[in-house]
C-alpha cells in the first residue's frame, strides 16, 4: 500500500504501523540519527503513537 512520510510516497506492506513507515523512511534516506528522537504526528498535528496502524493513503510527519 502507499503511505506518505513527510509528504514522500512510500510503498509498504499492508498492515504496516507508524513505526514501520518510519523505519522505511529513515532507511531509505539513511537518516539513522533520527531513530533516537522519533516522534510522529498527522497532518492535523495530532501526536501518533508509533504502534498506531496505517491505512492506504495515510500521511504521517516526523519531527
Amino acid at each position: 500500500m502507499k503511505v506518505f512520510v513527510n509528504d514522500v510516497e512510500i510503498n509498504i506492506f499492508e498492515g504496516a504501523r507508524v513505526i514501520d513507515a518510519t523505519h522505511n523512511f529513515i532507511n531509505r534516506f539513511e537518516l539513522f540519527e533520527k531513530l533516537r528522537r522519533l516522534s510522529a504526528h498527522d497532518a492535523w498535528n495530532n501526536r501518533l503513537d508509533l504502534d498506531g496502524e496505517l491505512q492506504e493513503g495515510s500521511r504521517i510527519y516526523l519531527d
Binding site: N46, L48, D49, D51, G52, E53
Partner: peptide, 23 residues
C-alpha cells in the same frame, strides 16, 4: 485504531471527532 492523541478536540463539519492515543 490509529493511536492518535487528539490533544485539542474540535468539530469537523460540525462533528466532534476525538481519539485518546493508546494504552
Amino acid at each position: 485504531h490509529s493511536h492518535t492523541l487528539v490533544e485539542h478536540p474540535e468539530a469537523h463539519n460540525g462533528v466532534l471527532v476525538t481519539q485518546s492515543g493508546s494504552k
